[in-house]
Design a protein around this nucleic acid. Structure first.
Length: 137
DNA sequence: GCCAACGTTGGC
DNA sequence: GCCAACGTTGGC
């Protein structure tokens, strides 16, 4: 079991849209590192759902329901998509500012590689974020 | 709206 | 293969 974090601009596709849809295809990634992360995702892996832009932070948890396949939004076979489903919202969203202040999260890839839209998260980091979001394991 | 970080492109 | 120019992302 691995843990990840994906970013979305809420004005483009918010957590609420995701919940309303009951799941979505995560496509359109055009960055090699992010693509490699998508390829490494396994069915059942848990994914922190992060809002970028105004009021950035982690708002919910999703899970991988379909592993990497050819991204249908392009003919180019370098790119892949995965399918995600919502698991649950955090009781309290965890703002980026709090992530920056949290000692347990000082090495999180989200902070190390700010512009990557799909980043790995360790089990410890994942659990730290959930506890900050008032959600038990 | 600005700017820093950083990935990509293209000239050489 | 290097590196400058350029474009994009995302925080503020």
């Amino acid at each position: 079991m691995n843990y990840w974090l994906v970013k979305s601009e809420p004005s483009a596709y918010s957590w609420d849209d995701f919940v309303k849809d009951g799941g979505t295809r995560w496509d359109g990634v055009r960055n090699y590192q992010a693509r490699n992360n998508l390829r490494a995702m396994k069915k059942g892996d848990l994914v922190l759902y992060y809002h970028s832009g105004a009021g950035p932070g982690v708002v919910g948890v999703a899970k991988v329901v379909k592993e990497a396949y050819q991204d249908p939004t392009t003919e180019d076979d370098r790119w892949v998509a995965i399918d995600l489903e919502p698991v649950r919202a955090l009781k309290a969203p965890v703002p980026l500012g709090d992530i920056k202040k949290e000692k347990r999260l000082k090495n999180i890839s989200l902070l190390k590689q700010g512009r990557l839209s799909v980043v790995p998260v360790t089990k410890e980091e994942y659990e730290a974020v959930l506890s900050m979001g008032s959600v038990g394991k």
